[in-house]
Design a protein around this nucleic acid. Sequence first.
DNA 1: TTGTACGCGTTATCAT
DNA 2: ATGATAACGCGTACAA
Lengths: 342, 342
Amino acid sequence: MKKRPARLSDVARAAGVSLATASRALAGSDLVLPDTRERVRNSAALLGYVPHGAARALASRRSRTIGAVLPTIDNPIFASATQALSRALANASYTLLLASHEYDPQAEVAVTRALIERGVDGLVFVGVDHAPQLFHELSRADVPCEPVWALDPGGFHHCVGFANREASARCAQHLLDLGHRRFAVLSGSLQHNDRARERVAGVRAALASRGIELPAERVVETPFSLGGGRGGLRALWQRLGRDGFTGLVCGNDLIALGALIECAAQGVSVPGALSVVGFDDIELSAEFSPALTTIHVPSADIGRFAAERLLSRLAGKRVPRMQEIPVELVVRGSTARAPRRL
Amino acid sequence: MKKRPARLSDVARAAGVSLATASRALAGSDLVLPDTRERVRNSAALLGYVPHGAARALASRRSRTIGAVLPTIDNPIFASATQALSRALANASYTLLLASHEYDPQAEVAVTRALIERGVDGLVFVGVDHAPQLFHELSRADVPCEPVWALDPGGFHHCVGFANREASARCAQHLLDLGHRRFAVLSGSLQHNDRARERVAGVRAALASRGIELPAERVVETPFSLGGGRGGLRALWQRLGRDGFTGLVCGNDLIALGALIECAAQGVSVPGALSVVGFDDIELSAEFSPALTTIHVPSADIGRFAAERLLSRLAGKRVPRMQEIPVELVVRGSTARAPRRL
DNA sequence: TTGTACGCGTTATCAT
DNA sequence: ATGATAACGCGTACAA
């Protein structure tokens, strides 16, 4: 009862054609008579033929597979981008191979290598800052890759993202414009994270242009999570005092929301005693705090564009080397009340 | 300058052994002299040899690849499970192929087929309720699969998850114990989602045991998001009035949090006028609302177990057909009794 | 327009 | 312990 899965040769025989013709027919080649094509397709359907990807990949030297190497999937920041990526790929009959390295550059090299062994036709990375060894492997494997979420200052790699530094500077500038002069930053871990570093650098640059310094003690690194935001804010308060700063720039949504929650828990009014700005990767901010000013990052676009660019390149089309995604400072009203404790 | 990538035959020649020996050496077989093995490994490293996955898969009939078919990656509910899955697989030199269908059963069949074509050695699904066609394809392809996040009432499939219905009944029971008698439910979309349906059924069962009915008008379907929670609660209030219900059961975290946010925005005290319980898939609740009672779902465990089970089965070991993950009702303080009037 | 035949890079089965 | 060689299933020049 357990039949051997049908192979292309079975389909060919059933349709009364040769292997080559069967192959062409199923590939939709124009070289076969429409009539023949139908016949082949019918027998394929009848036999429940499922192409054998490995054999196809071996012969065609293409796997119809794209790899994505993320720091982690568990961070909602990357979820919508990954979803969009996967969707766009599926539309083009490509499939996504996913790997994560949890901010460990060694692990990143390892998982990337695993993807290369799987024969991915292209790769998506997060950020442009990677172990040199990674680039060696990439170039030797000759796999087109597309870093996202950041731009390559050197203009060396293809990439699609936005200028984290400038965006973050706009956040700080917004606070400056509101009259704030004492600042603090809640950042994600800066190690092995060029996006986070750029964002801090942006704040520093904006403040510097007004002669304000941002010493290291005013920057707290904390996990990318609500708990991280809460704990980070407590750490800042402990270090600098409750009125050590009135303007707070957060590295991303989850941290910003955590900070807001901590404010609510401590009875600190926002905006008021404290004004918070941050990056809105995941669009939670709008719902949670209509008062929160954010840089809105269209994560889904990033994923979609990455897919489109990669597929275009595989198809031999040329794409602009660098694609800058416009990001927008969303000021959600300054009079909104602080979030309540729930 | 662009060298052809090194093949196994190159390694073999460089090491002065045959193809077969080289293969065995790199596979770590005990049948080769330790000395020979070293020699082979050295030349492999020297040449920068990278195994060709497709060829290996073709010859060995194994891709060292596992597929996961999710409703969507964009929902944080699935993120930590997927992360855990990916991590566990990577540890065993497996890679994750990811696909999503956005709650469309047709799409689910299509993407699953795509994964099967890619030659996945195993598959993970969400829930046990799928198009019959899906099971046809699966059995014909003879791919072991592991539904997660639910248990199979028929005991037909392997699976790892928990009893959504009973868990949800515990939520409702908790509210009953607090004296609540008027209920409403904010569910995710019920269509093509057995988990959501089971959760509603659980509430209904618990209430029925106290002679309380839950007519359809008291159940609102809303997107799995904060916005969905907010909008859904508004819809319920509009339909049933502000004091049409004092106990609210939410289908998951995001919805529950959205509801809480809406309460805050409308000045409704929680717990007080309203008591909310829900599923805590993503552990936001603890940070956000120390008062929220939830069923805590250890998503990461689900992913890890799915990986372990699948890999065990591939290794020929037997695993218990069904694995029930314990879930826990977490009462986070200030339990609200039902309001004392009428 | 269709068929023949070779190659893709590995693993696995025999011998030795 | 190692080597020769036949699969593995498909794509694609090249021939017809």
